[in-house]
């Protein structure tokens, strides 16, 4: 396996300034991600995970340092780094189909015909098993379904990197497990490069190739990076008793709850 960096976060600092009050949120973040890798970022609430993801997405600019994708600097948002937002962010006045189509029409305006784009939208809705609800509006489908459509919208743009900001955070445990399995299957099938933010230790270990653990803010840094040496495809039930799974889990828990305990009130 060649280990050429695909996505590179290079010495990123981020300081927010309001008036003359400045808060340093991120301090010297360095990270390289290889093509096809699934990397999770875990850390306590408010440490700057979303800020970091938004910098990679181009929605926020870093104060220092930058993001390189295939050795080219990126500093504005684009469909090559599609985001699945924490609260789905589907446009409520569009149907499920139209929400996915919005991105497809822009990205493939010159490379696909109308019929091909339509087929591509349906293909991606099928990938997340949402084709049956294509004419429903977001208000008419459940939270888990909305998140599926959000994933389909991002996948349909054929991004180089898929960015997930706590994609399952707002879901109940059963739906969450179901969606985690779906995302795992999609990653297996399509080989996307994925950067995911999560709060959930089990989710991080189950899904990731590497887990990036962030220290508490302000001035959050990368505290530790853990490789997860579990072979794929991974089965949730089998892993429950797997020794290296439990060891990874233990490492992350120790990091979060012993060495970097969350002190301030959330």
């Amino acid at each position: 396996m060649t280990t050429q960096p695909y996505l590179k976060l290079d010495h990123i600092d981020k300081t927010f300034t309001r008036g003359n009050a400045t808060t340093e949120v991120l301090k010297d973040i360095n990270l390289t991600i290889e093509k096809g890798q699934y990397v999770s970022i875990i850390g306590h609430s408010g440490c700057g995970k979303s800020t970091l993801l938004n910098i990679v997405a181009g929605l926020t600019n870093a104060t220092q340092g930058g993001v390189l994708l295939e050795n080219r600097e990126v500093n504005s948002p684009g469909p090559d780094r599609a985001v699945v937002f924490q609260n789905h962010s589907l446009l409520p006045w569009l149907t499920v189909y139209e929400n996915v189509k919005l991105g497809v029409d822009k990205v493939f305006s010159s490379t696909k015909t109308r019929a091909e784009r339509d087929a591509w939208v349906m293909h991606n809705l099928n990938l997340v098993q949402m084709a049956h609800a294509k004419d429903k509006r977001p208000a008419e489908i459940s939270g888990g379904m909305k998140q599926r459509v959000g994933i389909a919208r991002a996948l349909a743009m054929e991004p180089k990197v898929l960015l997930l900001d706590e994609p399952f955070g707002a879901l109940d445990a059963l739906t969450r497990a179901h969606l985690q399995d779906s995302v795992m299957a999609l990653h297996q099938k399509l080989g996307n490069t994925i950067l995911m933010i999560t709060h959930d230790v089990d989710e991080a270990v189950l899904l990731s190739d590497r887990i990036v653990m962030m220290t508490n803010g302000p001035s959050a840094r990368i505290g530790e990076v853990l490789e997860v040496p579990l072979p794929r495809p991974r089965k949730r039930l089998e892993l429950a008793t797997n020794a290296s799974y439990l060891k990874c889990r233990q490492r992350v828990l120790e990091f979060l709850y012993e060495r970097h305990r969350f002190v301030e009130a959330a």
Partner: peptide
């Protein structure tokens, strides 16, 4: 959120007006 969606999809100002702002 809607502005972020528009930015990721790269809607131009006219599309942003018609597809996001007005609705």
């Amino acid at each position: 959120d809607y502005r972020n969606v528009a930015a990721v999809v790269q809607l131009n100002p006219l599309e942003f007006f018609g597809k996001i702002m007005v609705p």
